[in-house]
Amino acid sequence: MTRIDDTFARLRAENRKAFVAYVMSGDPDAETAAQIVRGLPGAGVDIIELGLPFTDPMADGATIQLAGQRALEGGMTLDGTLDIVRQLRAEDDTTPVVMMGYYNPIYSRGVDRFLEQAREAGVDGLIIVDLPPEEDAELCLPAQAAGLNFIRLATPTTDDKRLPKVLQNTSGFVYYVSITGITGAGSASAEAVGPEVARIKRSTDLPVIVGFGIKTPDAAEEIAAVADGCVVGSAIVERIGRGDSVTDVLAYVKSLADGAHRAG
């Protein structure tokens, strides 16, 4: 059982939905990013997604691309990202952290070395968007052997033929991308998402969390009501990018978390 598994077990017992928040490591700077990450649990966040900045973030829209650029220009690295996790773990040993990003920095570090360092820092799971199931031997299977969940994305174009392949080595939860396209594009609709979540749940016992296109507390509630929870990323990162204070960012996150938790 990982922290992710424990969190979903607790939420099920409480009849509550999960709220997941994404922030970019090192944005707008290392110190501020660490303050935000450490404040997320108190703002009602059940699982933290921590972006690993990368120079070629092909799945991300402009908001998260710019956040990654700010982080890289400020000197954020893989080691710096792990250090932010360690800072959280110094005061919170229960809130799961999922590192989300691309394979290149991990490959450059070396998979075995990275997994050892990630576990030591307190990372619980990985979402690596450019490693398809056909490449599970690269990182997915070693990660799970090391005790980290490997979370896969399913999308509106993941048909019934492809879905079993996506699910076969997934653990922790399934991340359903509610819209076709990059992060920050469009708005999620419960009417469209609900049947897709139900279709996925017919093929897995894992929780299904919905992300992309959620920007308001009402939208968080609406989407969480038809899934096991929701993810908000670009809308939070946008506020960080425009210079909102840590207090204001966390207040916004709390409003979203409250919305998602109303759906329970």
Results as ranks from 00 to 15, higher is better:
residue 225 A to C: 10
residue 181 G to H: 06
residue 215 K to V: 06
residue 14 E to C: 00
residue 118 A to V: 10
residue 39 G to H: 13
residue 37 V to I: 14
residue 239 R to K: 13
residue 132 P to S: 07
residue 14 E to V: 01
residue 131 L to G: 08
residue 264 G to D: 10
residue 242 R to D: 10
residue 48 I to N: 10
residue 1 M to I: 12
residue 137 A to E: 15
residue 198 A to S: 15
residue 228 D to N: 05
residue 23 V to D: 02
residue 255 S to G: 13
residue 71 A to T: 06
residue 153 L to E: 01
residue 25 S to F: 01
residue 228 D to Y: 00
residue 11 L to I: 09
residue 126 L to D: 00
residue 244 D to W: 05
residue 182 I to S: 09
residue 74 G to D: 11
residue 182 I to Q: 13
residue 38 R to D: 03
residue 10 R to P: 06
residue 224 A to H: 01
residue 45 V to Y: 02
residue 169 N to M: 06
residue 134 E to I: 06
residue 232 V to Y: 04
residue 161 K to W: 08
residue 174 V to A: 03
residue 206 L to Y: 09
residue 40 L to I: 05
residue 209 I to Q: 03
residue 91 E to C: 13
residue 164 P to T: 04
residue 148 L to E: 00
residue 176 Y to T: 03
residue 61 G to A: 11
residue 224 A to T: 01
residue 172 G to W: 03
residue 97 V to D: 05
residue 192 A to D: 15
residue 31 E to Q: 15
residue 84 I to F: 09
residue 110 G to P: 09
residue 175 Y to P: 06
residue 62 A to M: 14
residue 189 S to G: 09
residue 100 M to Y: 12
residue 34 A to C: 13
residue 101 G to D: 12
residue 93 D to T: 15
residue 100 M to S: 09
residue 2 T to E: 10
residue 140 C to Q: 09
residue 85 V to I: 15
residue 229 G to F: 04
residue 126 L to E: 01
residue 191 E to P: 08
residue 262 R to W: 12
residue 157 T to I: 11
residue 229 G to Y: 03
residue 207 P to I: 05
residue 241 G to T: 10
residue 139 L to C: 09
residue 242 R to E: 13
residue 223 I to F: 11
residue 169 N to H: 15
residue 145 A to T: 11
residue 258 D to V: 13
residue 205 D to N: 14
residue 176 Y to C: 07
residue 128 I to Q: 06
residue 230 C to Q: 00
residue 148 L to R: 01
residue 237 V to H: 04
residue 91 E to V: 15
residue 138 E to I: 12
residue 224 A to Q: 00
residue 148 L to F: 04
residue 226 V to M: 07
residue 232 V to I: 10
residue 101 G to Y: 03
residue 170 T to Q: 02
residue 125 G to Q: 04
residue 39 G to K: 11
residue 177 V to P: 00
residue 225 A to W: 06
residue 189 S to F: 09
residue 10 R to Q: 14
residue 4 I to W: 01
residue 10 R to L: 13
residue 53 P to Q: 04
residue 246 V to S: 00
residue 82 L to C: 07
residue 164 P to L: 06
residue 121 A to Y: 11
residue 48 I to A: 10
residue 11 L to F: 08
residue 82 L to F: 03
residue 142 P to V: 11
residue 173 F to R: 03
residue 169 N to D: 14
residue 194 G to M: 08
residue 8 F to W: 03
residue 70 R to C: 03
residue 253 V to Q: 00
residue 118 A to N: 08
residue 95 T to F: 12
residue 255 S to K: 10
residue 210 V to G: 00
residue 182 I to N: 06
residue 145 A to M: 07
